[in-house]
Design a protein around this nucleic acid. Sequence first.
DNA 1: GACTATTTGTACGTATGTATC
DNA 2: CGATACATACGTACAAATAGT
Lengths: 88, 88
Amino acid sequence: MDADAVIDYDSLTPVYAQLAAILRARIDRGDWAAGRRILSESQLVQAYGLARGTVRKAIAALVEDGVLVAVPGRGTFVALAEDNDPAE
Amino acid sequence: MDADAVIDYDSLTPVYAQLAAILRARIDRGDWAAGRRILSESQLVQAYGLARGTVRKAIAALVEDGVLVAVPGRGTFVALAEDNDPAE
DNA sequence: GACTATTTGTACGTATGTATC
DNA sequence: CGATACATACGTACAAATAGT
């Protein structure tokens, strides 16, 4: 996945999945280290021009994969375990 | 969980979680056998007086747990495997 | 093949609640 | 107290898949 920072609405891949891939790439390339807080939902909404629901869906997918950890009232953080669960 | 068929908006448990518990109970008691199609999202909306997003969230939780399987254009079905993944 | 109806999937918008800072 | 941030719940609209006419 090379299309960082750009959402392609004509793509077969859902927007939220594209954003999830973008965020995962940014984490992999070191934009945010483990344990660091990433952009807030509002900031992601503005940065990529998406609806909040779409941003939340992307974050939820990464939380599901153990890449991110969401903490109510604090923000969303990069998970500490680098190697995630290969199950599924 | 005994409060079948009734959503309690004053409960600490989120509405979508209550609906998920209700549906799981209905499956356990045999309202729908394995491989059978359950109510459509629209029917669940009408039956329980909820928004579609809430219904979808409840279904998503059960799909996550391997209890249900959603098929685009056809409906949502009771999964074949009775004993689900106890992980998590 | 065309058309319609049904059903799930995706996307967006808004409001409220609660916890944190 | 106010601002920020995540969680939940409501609503709308359109797209895609499926089935039947």
